[in-house]
Design a protein around this nucleic acid. Structure first.
Lengths: 198, 198, 198, 198
DNA sequence: GATGAATGAGGTTTCATTCAT
DNA sequence: CATGAATGAAACCTCATTCAT
């Protein structure tokens, strides 16, 4: 469906890209298809973006920006690192659940891109990873997380776990409620597997 | 008749594919390049594989088969679930560290493939995930892992953590020793972040 | 949107195809060769035709359309079925003789195509066969052709004869004047072999 | 079905070729398929035939040889040119009707071959065309055919008519009885369309 | 004579990007 | 600003033929 809204073309194109990629898959999302969905001519795309890769990088940047901003806002309202982490997990799942297409694009489709693009995406992701790093630091300082933690490994565990769970959920066509599992995931990350029968 | 025996040519081609993909990247790995590296004619590839995708699926199948077999062997020697998990993590990292090219191919390049291929790869991965599931089950039964664990989430945490760490390590050009961190990762998964100051 | 209008490019490509096929033969007529002769890029072909087969079907359709139109026009000017047939035969040969390349393409090269294409060509030919059928009907009604004629066999005789003569002429490199034989052929079809010494 | 008969391999291969081409079509009849059906190795084909084209030429030669021989035999028993022609037409249809696969191969599939092969086939056909020529000559000499006949055109009419009718019959999946129409076709060729109301 | 594994040339089509209007 | 027709590079796979055994 082509809608000629009064959104600036830049936003129109990015939203069209999300939609087209979610519906057709990364490799079947030609520039011409995105242009058509955005209601602009193929050539117009190149007035707003350097090239196709730039659309995707910008897409990720824009959406991730909003993603991060919302999470930061909520996290800043609490002091306890453990609670911060709980909020981050719940909001991570929540934002994906609220945007069906974006979930598909970020969890599945964009990962098919070439390594150059993936490195750029990783660059953008760093802001998010930094938030996780800060929570870990805070937790250690507050004494709720173990002093001996390797912060990098801890962050990779947190992100790896959340991301794997999100990806599995998208691959199952988002059929179950992943947000409801946030607390369990939180508990898992905080307590690990152990029954602590020391 | 195409038989996937351990004939030299079949193995030659798969090993060439690993090498070519690691060196040139997924999208720049033409069949002709693989054939050249394997020392066979382009057409010979098609005596052993249905099509290009089949090379990649077979590659993953063969290598993952060995990967799993070795891990299973070691794990069966111990009873304690926690130790089993420790072995799995160490061997996972170890096998990637021992095969530089294969690490690049499985952690980075093969993930750029289209969804059809990714689904086939996931199918193969299931055998590995099943081993993790069995460790979790054993741990719960032995009382070393919490009864309340959601086994699926636990498995996703374990795999997500290991995979994220492995991918980061490969993206950093395998510059540090990931095997040395196996114990720390194990501890992280078993104990979580918490300092347990309950 | 691809419109089969009389835009220059569409016609350019078809005419180039006739020329290239006549000169190089059906199997040696690559799309790139046709594009070059038409003075367009390879990809431009696909803005005007679905695929290579579509070039050939369109070629036959366009040329046969003109062929039929011209014959119909002349035939409509006379009433006598016998004369209609005479005109059809003369014009059939004449149009082939006027277009050296097209004669080669339709009589020799296009017949090497696969069955799918041949069926499409046959479909187009039906319009021409229908004209022959109408002449036969008219002739029977006018009493100049025998009442007992099997119209289908009669049509097959007419078309088979004309086509065989045309093909032989093309295979002899169009070295003699086939148009001059039109009257003889007409006589042959009307009177048969018989000397009528009943 | 692969039958290891004690027929010489040469004949085995030709019969397999007829069968394979009739079933799969000209372009889908690879040498390996013919070899398989003949129950020999691919390489064995090249002990009996120079190349693939040679199989097809030999096939046509062998089968046409039998075809012609039978017709000649019957024709020699009568003197009247008109009757000779009647026999030729009936036997032409009859031999095609008796060999379903061969009819498909000669009327449809072999015509998709390249021009080089078609020229060789025409060379073989000449023996058959010569028989027709002799009938025409005899008819003129006997006074049953018109003196003024152009013998070449007459031969092209006869062969073109018979061939067109045979081809149409094969394209209609040989669903009706073409042999029954032989007399009508004969009459058509002898008397033409005309009702002779001079 | 017979085998069949190996060879390697060759072509259709897609799609990101440009640029004249 | 916007258009969209035109560009042209690039690769998977088939199959007739060979030749060492």
């Amino acid at each position: 469906m082509i809608l000629k809204t009064n959104k600036p073309k830049y936003t129109q194109i990015i939203d069209a890209a999300v939609n087209v990629i979610a519906e057709n898959g990364y490799h079947a999302s030609q520039v011409s298809k995105i242009a058509k969905k955005a209601g602009v001519a193929d050539g117009t795309i190149y007035l707003y973006f350097k090239n196709k890769e730039d659309i995707l990088v910008s897409l990720f940047q824009e959406k991730m920006g909003i993603f991060i901003e919302k999470i930061e806002k909520e996290i800043n309202d609490v002091d306890d690192a453990e609670k911060k982490l709980g909020i981050l997990i719940k909001m991570h799942f929540n934002q994906l659940a609220e945007n069906h297409d974006l979930a598909i694009v970020t969890q599945l489709e964009l990962r098919q891109s070439n390594i150059a693009l993936r490195l750029k995406i990783n660059e953008i992701l760093k802001k998010y990873l930094k938030i996780i790093d800060e929570i870990i630091d805070a937790g250690i300082n507050q004494g709720v997380f173990r002093k001996e933690l390797n912060p990098r490994l801890a962050r990779q565990m947190i992100f790896g776990t959340i991301d794997e769970i999100a990806t599995n959920w998208v691959m199952k066509d988002q059929k179950y409620n992943v947000v409801k599992q946030a607390d369990e995931v939180h508990e898992l990350i905080i307590q690990g597997l152990s029954s602590n029968v020391d």
